[in-house]
Design a binder for these strands. Sequence first.
DNA 1: CCCGAAGGTGAGCAAGCGCTTAGAGCTTGA
DNA 2: TCAAGCTCTAAGCGCTTGCTCACCTTCGGG
Lengths: 212, 212
Amino acid sequence: MSAADETAERAAGDEQPWDEVTPEAAKKLLVAAVEAFAERGYHATTTRDIAGRAGMSPAALYIHYKTKEELLHRISRIGHDKALEILNAAYDGVGTPTERLADAVRSFVRWHAGRYTTARVVQYELDALSDTHRTEILGLRRQSDAVVRRILNEGVEAGEFDVPDVPGTTVAVLSLCIDVARWFNTQGRRTPDEVGALYADLVLRMVSAQKK
Amino acid sequence: MSAADETAERAAGDEQPWDEVTPEAAKKLLVAAVEAFAERGYHATTTRDIAGRAGMSPAALYIHYKTKEELLHRISRIGHDKALEILNAAYDGVGTPTERLADAVRSFVRWHAGRYTTARVVQYELDALSDTHRTEILGLRRQSDAVVRRILNEGVEAGEFDVPDVPGTTVAVLSLCIDVARWFNTQGRRTPDEVGALYADLVLRMVSAQKK
DNA sequence: CCCGAAGGTGAGCAAGCGCTTAGAGCTTGA
DNA sequence: TCAAGCTCTAAGCGCTTGCTCACCTTCGGG
């Protein structure tokens, strides 16, 4: 089994997400919140809407979460942990920097497309977090950035990549992947796998040493 | 003067934007709204906040705009017109598809970075528009998409580009440029010109025929 | 068999929201 | 000279918001 397949299995394996959220009612509310936040945005979503989607009364929300913002924070934290785990799995995989970069982009994009409602909340609702919570989350994002930069640097050292501006290219690669959550939707013609494959190819072209 | 320089001049030339908005008070309110929407998002911004930034009373807003949503629509419309104009200028420029694609990416990215508050509202607050207004704006976005796709197709026909998936690559190129508005900020180390140059280079690598 | 903890509800509070209205001040042309 | 017509404000209306509270159920352990 190749490193790519292993990562694919891992990403596809836990397609019953939010299992870490208990009890059942808290999970139902959280899933409802993800849907609502992704659809309308955090500030346009009311606690009545979230509770309604979960089939509960508005007051039920406050048994499991102190505030609406705490709900967002739980979602954001779990999502960022997952995103970072995906990148780390690719970094720790076997293979050349080229293979591991392709692996990282493929699985990272697949997650942003396949779980685009979650990813949208995770990537585009940071501003709605409290100062404390946002600071915590930004720490995780810096780690994601560092993982990609490390792969690029290793590829340059190995002579596989020609990247004049590693920090700039790191930002661009992550940006390209993250933005998938904005435009992807299930009505589109492509599957998450297809987008992942396309993007892995495009990113490799961006960094490959030109053979002239 | 090259085609690239002409576009640069045009993009840099009207750095006193919103000149089409009159009278003065309406412009002041609109600029205040752009700042507030970019900072907090449409739904988290109050009409009192907008009026306050413009140094006026909350009621003053309703002399110049029927609703808060109409304000967003004016901003979105003007911004999308500008973005489309930038892409069209690059398309209509002289030069090979390679030069015109680089020109398009460079000036499009420069706008998203240099005017990132406006771009943020334009690109990330579409959902807050009314159905009618959103439909109108989506028409402009489809035109932007078409321009980029046309340049890619012409490059493929000319044998300059190796792009197996033109629609997918079109989405990726636009996505990469648009996302600049999300992460760019004036505290960063790069100028809009530098980001534009970097991204033009990255995009050319994505589409260039590989010389093996 | 009853008790207390835990999970749930209906009603509703205080605050803040988008927006309106009555009228004040300033400019302008008959 | 002054009525007409803008532009703007102070005050506030009706409504929705995030969140609370008194109370009701369900259920495992003494």
